[in-house]
Write a protein that binds this DNA or RNA. Structure first.
Length: 471
RNA sequence: GGACAGGUGUCCGAGCGGUUGAAGGAGCAGCACUGGAAAUGCUGUAUACGGCCAAAAGUCGUAUCGAGGGUUCGAAUCCCUCCCUGUCCGCCA
């Protein structure tokens, strides 16, 4: 969430942030409620201060009198009772005032809080303005050169021009090579479910394990295994709720008598960032560099009819995720952003997948990020159908790298103590390392051979018993 | 899932319904002592929000003893609900 002090001091920045992100949050209403709340709180606190002062004064006297009352009789007893009654009546008026203020605040506090957590993190100043993903700006692209195991590939030319034969789509490849069984996945769990079979499962696991090991061994990240079933606080704290509530599977344990419902996480980011919620870290602990491999669950509400075929948009998948929690420093955050993206690029290059980086425009950012770069991988089986009847190929999003400023850590109450010993909300970043089975689409489609087999990229071979191709 | 026992500051650990942000210890920091250290002594050692202040420092107020609600003039202390931890039993990858 945002800092209310900053909102008061510079509301225009947040109004502009809402506008640029295309989000409709009533900032002025929030400001008015905040003002009202603070003014009542001041009165409430004054009343309570007086109440406390009286309590300290009256308390010991009452204690003494009540002690005396036990042994008193007759007139002395009646006099004591009168004195006690008069002492006790003193703070009663204050109590009524306190209760009235409390009720007043309670009457609009939920609205105040709801508005507060909805205000999005304003985009960084250098993020291009735009209204949708169409306005994203390409930063650079990479095409594989000729190497020991694959020929060069140029995405500006058709697959057939590059390779000399028409490509199959990944749905055809997984069918012909028996890597995925969609029918039975749907039988068990409904639309957008699948069964990975045989070498399909092995390839899936190989990609994940390669990516995790890469992050740990080459990039110095700490591997973690985190819960994928979490409480609502985790979802709110990481910024996925309330905005993304419809995207998460909801386990209604409260309906069975438990105290709290649970939610399935859509990314390992939730578990990784939740680890240090409500903590104050030391400067030496930073930066935190965590990576995890976790199963991700997404309802894909609102995506009905989109990408219905194949492995692109599914309800359950596995993802290696990376997060960095660093000190509250813009330059440091930007440096980590670059470093995290470099990890992704190195992995994609080693797998021989053409890709491009897109600077997301303001309108494509979520509530919590101030800057986001998407990585899109080349998928020869995607895109329009060309004159020759084969798809022309297209880039499809496989990764996303966000800078969140202190927005997420403020929500999570995750701080560190700076050089002066002051607690400061840390900055957070997150980035996909690899998400599978989606990444199997470019791997299979890019490395398919004329005979219908698929060459396994060398880094994955050790994870597949040394196999060099499928089929 | 059942039966008990618990949850207090960085940690351990007291706490009678009334001057308790909270005894006592440990740790940590500063100072003193020392040639230097140990030992010892003294001092300090939470967070959030709000007020005062140009700001910082500081200071004042409020809240926080697992969370939320209640009783009361007043709750760490009493009551209710939930969460968590431990032990035993049951079940089980």
């Amino acid at each position: 969430m945002i800092d209310l002090k900053q909102l008061r001091e510079n509301p225009d920045r947040f109004r502009a942030g809402c506008r640029d992100k295309g989000m409709d949050v009533d900032v002025d209403r929030l400001l008015a409620l905040d003002e009202r709340r603070r003014s009542i709180m001041t009165k409430l606190e004054d009343a309570r201060a007086e109440q406390n002062r009286l309590g300290k004064e009256v308390g010991p006297q009452l204690g003494k009198l009540k002690g005396q009352l036990k042994s008193a009789t007759g007139d002395a007893k009646a006099a004591l009772e009168r004195e006690i009654a008069s002492l006790e009546s003193k703070p009663v008026a204050l109590k009524a005032a306190v209760q009235q203020y409390e009720q007043e605040v309670a009457s609009f506090e939920p609205e105040w809080k709801a508005l507060w957590i909805q205000v999005p993190q304003p985009p960084a100043s250098d993020v291009p303005k735009g209204s949708s993903s169409d306005d994203n700006v390409e930063i650079r692209r990479w095409n594989p050169p000729k190497s020991e195991w694959m020929d060069a590939f140029d995405t500006s030319k058709s697959f057939e021009t590059n390779r000399g034969f028409k490509p199959k789509s990944h749905t055809e490849l997984v069918r012909d090579l028996r890597l995925v069984d969609f029918e039975r996945g749907v039988k068990m769990s409904g639309t957008r479910h699948y069964v990975l079979t045989g070498m399909g499962m092995r390839l899936h696991q190989a990609v994940l394990r390669y990516a995790l090991d890469f992050m740990v061994e080459r990039r110095g990240f700490t591997p973690m295994g985190v819960p994928v079933i979490v409480r609502e606080e985790c979802m709110v704290g990481t910024g996925f709720f309330p905005a993304g509530r419809e995207q998460a599977y909801h386990i209604e344990e409260s309906k069975r008598g438990a105290g709290a419902d649970l939610f399935l996480t859509g990314t390992g980011e939730v578990g990784l960032m939740g680890i240090h919620a409500d903590e104050i870290l030391t400067l030496e602990q930073l930066p935190l560099k965590y990576t995890t491999c976790s199963t991700c669950f997404r309802r894909e509400a609102g995506a009905a009819g989109k990408d219905t075929a194949g492995l692109y948009r599914i309800h359950q998948f596995d993802k290696v995720e990376q997060v960095v929690v660093c000190r509250a420093d813009d330059a440091e955050s930007r440096a980590w952003h670059g470093s995290m993206l470099q990890s992704v690029e190195l992995i994609l290059q080693s797998l021989g997948i053409p890709y491009r980086l897109l600077q997301c425009c303001t309108g494509d950012l979520g509530v919590k990020n101030e800057d986001m770069i998407d990585v899109e991988s080349w998928m020869p089986g995607r895109g329009e159908i060309g004159k020759d009847g084969a798809p022309t190929g297209a880039y499809g999003e496989t990764h996303s790298a966000s800078r969140l400023g202190d927005y997420q850590c403020r929500r999570l109450n995750l701080r560190y103590r700076d050089e002066n010993g002051k607690p400061v909300f840390a900055y957070a970043l997150n980035n996909t390392v690899i998400a599978s089975p989606r990444v199997l689409i470019p791997i299979l489609e890019m490395h398919q051979q004329k005979d219908g087999s698929v060459v396994i990229p060398p880094p994955l071979r050790p994870y597949m018993g040394g196999a060099t191709k499928i089929g």
